[in-house]
Amino acid sequence: MIRDVTLGQYFPGSSFLHRMDPRSKILLMVFYVVTLFLGDTALSYGLLLVTTAAVILLTRISLKFYLRGLKPLLFIMVFTGILNMLYSDGEPLFEFWIFSVSWNGIFSALFMILRIVLMVLIMSVLTYTTSPLLLTGGLERLLHPLTYLRVPVHDFAMMMTIALRFIPTLLEETEKIMNAQKARGADFESGSLVRRAKALIPILIPLFVSAFRRAEELAVAMECRCYEGDRKNRTRFVEYRFTWRDLVGALFCAALLVGVILLNRVIVWNGVGV
């Protein structure tokens, strides 16, 4: 069903990661991804695999949801994997047509796929453990220095919050309208491409109308509560504070970086022919 789409999904909880400050979570995720791309030996990837698994376990969210997040990326992973395998130098293991496959290529393909998987997993950790509100709030505060360059950071953050908030609402609305038109005999499943595109009109028009109506209502509701965008004297209901958890997280990430760099140098086994 249409409702199964998981965009910006958040799983409420009270794990260590749930309670970290959103600002440090965002920064550390970026740091983690950079570390991921620094690794280039089997050992350093082994370490990254173990730490990522540990982080995922720490969120106390079922592994099922992480795997579901990986599914849509399967095609990209296979695609980049094959490309990496075919376009790597090294002693050819076997050749066919214009391609040659080497151990080197196979390893670099595996590493590339692992990189993508780990990156998506760690990003999922961020969105799964941070509510959209905290996420955009944290982002807004991190980007705050840009306001001195006259970038309307607050407005962008507010737009993002609202967009995230309305994704499920609009999905639900789409389903309702589709059912209502089906009840009037609309047919979305058969006919030529043109006919099917035309069949979308009875869904899209009511959907746009209701989206505009919602936007207008929301604007009025916000104005009723004296919302005026970003103002200097505007205070926050929730003040973010760094705690010991954030320190632990930062130390963990720093140690990981050091570990990856060290393991990159220890060439115990880095494939055959290197």
Binding site: K176, N179, Q181, A183, G185, P206
Partner: peptide, 17 residues
């Protein structure tokens, strides 16, 4: 069947197009 069993949804005015 759907034309034989007509269903008017809640707030059906939102389906007008």
């Amino acid at each position: 069947l759907r034309s034989n069993v007509g269903l008017v949804f809640q707030y059906p005015e939102y389906q007008l197009f």
